[in-house]
Amino acid sequence: MIAISFIALTVGIFMFMTWLYKRSGISFLFPILTSTIVLIVMLVVLNIPYSTYMEGGKFINWLLGPAVVAMAYPLYTQWDTIMKNRKIILSCVAVAMITGMITVLLMAWLVNLEDEVMLSYLPKSITSPVALQISATIGGIPQFTVFFVIVAGIVGAVCGPLCYRLFHIDTPVSRGVSMGSASHGIGVSKLTEYGEQTLSIGSVSMTLSAILGALLCPLVAWLLF
């Protein structure tokens, strides 16, 4: 009963926030951001622990695995586009991964953060289920990593459209590659608004990022720490 009410609450808040987001057209009202804030405030005010919420939340969480697998479908329908642009996609995903790591490590080093936090930063542009495992493998704090991953995703989803306009990133390939390799699943979910081609390039970039990150993060951690 508790489980069902938390599922209903989450879905209800999400539907309302999606309606509000579409109605207002303001990108800062991105549903995952507003729904998360509303839910956290409600749980804190009503003094409900996260573990109780997850009695229901875990059922939604379970769908995350099949949903990641489902990304194979747009890859399949857009296979020709992907193969046609494979050089761009591969090189940009690699550049994005390296740029993300260098910038984040440089800034963390400048403000003198602890090694564990720096290690937790490394997989920040990778989809959360993969990032969690990488963080644990290289000696980071997995919960911090999840937080960074979510922030990276929301930044892409919220600021992405503005970046597209300001920097003339105006093609399905350039939009998909930048979102997928910088802001993983949360950012890519935003691409549903840009059509199937952009979405599939985004998913393939995200997938490649995850595979590349799983190989590269342990190497960087081993070299630098």
């Binding site: 642009n85 050089k87 761009i88 996609i89 090189s91 940009c92 550049v95 994005a96 740029t99 993300g100 910038t103 984040v104 800034m107 963390a108 403000v111 953060l113 936090v117 930063y121 920040k124 542009s125 911090f144 937080f147 960074f148 922030v151 990276a152 930044v155 892409g156 600021c159 992405g160 970046c163 597209y164 920097f167 003339h168 990133i169 105006d170 093609t171 390939v173 350039s174 939009r175 590659v177 930048s178 979102m179 390799s181 910088a182 802001s183």
Partner: peptide, 28 residues
Amino acid sequence: VLVIIVTASTLITFILTGKLARRMEGKV
């Protein structure tokens, strides 16, 4: 502080990658 670092790094990566991809594509 942690959030600012992630945000800055994500934006730099995002814009650089997008511009690079757009340039590699050429005229579309």
